[in-house]
């Protein structure tokens, strides 16, 4: 988009939307949308409260733990699937099923199996992120050039060496792509988990704010949450571009 010959930066229209928000809020059109300025000033109060910091801490903890398991399990499983045809054929249908299944339906099961706490939220997070990581790691291994593998064998690489020195690096661009999407999904998973289990983290906080009609507080937390999610996603995309520079030249 260019205006009077100037290229407007990509995200600059958000300023316009912010102004619209302020205007709608000021006009008092609806109780549910307080002016942006009020939300922002509330934001600075909210982030200093102990409740917010506790929620942030709990969410970060659950998120990091969930993502850790998704990556630590997902990548090896994906690589194994890419390497072993039988395993691939046995697991792939289920990976595809869970990739597009409404995982929210599984949360109640997790709640009865693992209790109404952190554990269930962490597993929800893992479940949201892991399938795409498996699928992409598998795809990454599948496209590895055969001659690269043969080269490793001809130079006498042990299976372990071949795994860490060849498969992992050759499949890295796809794996990273999967990790990025997996993490974005995990962000959604951790919030969905908290909403349904709702006695921890932001789930509890939202419950508190909406019960007390604290609209500005609610929006302030939403802004923080969305901004964090967006930053994570952009950062990962940036990282992927930096690391996968060789992706096109394999």
């Amino acid at each position: 988009m260019t205006l009077f010959g100037y290229r407007l930066p990509g995200m600059s229209s958000l300023i316009l939307w912010g102004l619209l928000w302020e205007f709608v809020g000021q006009s008092g059109m609806t109780f549910f949308v307080p002016p942006l300025s009020e939300v922002l000033s509330t934001l600075f109060e909210v982030v200093q409260t102990a409740a917010f910091q506790k929620a942030l801490y709990e969410t970060t903890y659950a998120f990091l733990a969930g993502v850790f398991f998704a990556i630590a399990i997902g990548i090896p499983v994906g690589i194994l699937m890419g390497k072993n045809r039988l395993l691939d054929e046995l697991l792939l249908p289920w990976v595809n099923v869970f990739l597009s299944a409404p995982l929210t339906a599984l949360v109640p099961v997790l709640m009865v199996l693992f209790g109404f706490g952190m554990k269930a939220i962490i597993i929800t997070t893992t479940l949201f992120g892991i399938w795409i990581i498996i699928l992409n790691s598998r795809a990454g291994v599948k496209q590895i050039n055969r001659s690269l593998v043969e080269m490793a064998h001809s130079f006498g690489a042990s299976p372990l060496d071949a795994f860490f020195k060849i498969y992992f690096w050759a499949a890295l661009p796809e794996i990273l792509g999967g990790v990025r999407i997996g993490i974005i999904r995990a962000v959604k998973g951790v919030i969905i988990g908290q909403l349904l289990i709702s006695i921890v983290g932001f789930g509890a906080l939202f419950e508190l704010y909406s019960a007390n009609f604290l609209m500005a507080h609610f929006w302030a937390v939403l802004i923080v949450l969305f901004a964090l999610a967006f930053t994570i996603s952009e950062f990962l995309a940036y990282l992927e571009r930096r690391v996968s520079y060789y992706a096109a030249k394999r």
Binding site: M1, L8, G10, S13, L14, W17, F32, L195, F206, F218
Partner: peptide, 22 residues
């Protein structure tokens, strides 16, 4: 594109489920 795509890009990355209580 300039006007709308940032909204949807943010929505795509954000955990929109958080809007449910609202």
């Amino acid at each position: 594109e300039w006007l709308f795509s940032p909204i949807f890009i943010v929505m795509q990355a954000a955990p929109l489920a958080a809007l449910i209580p609202l």
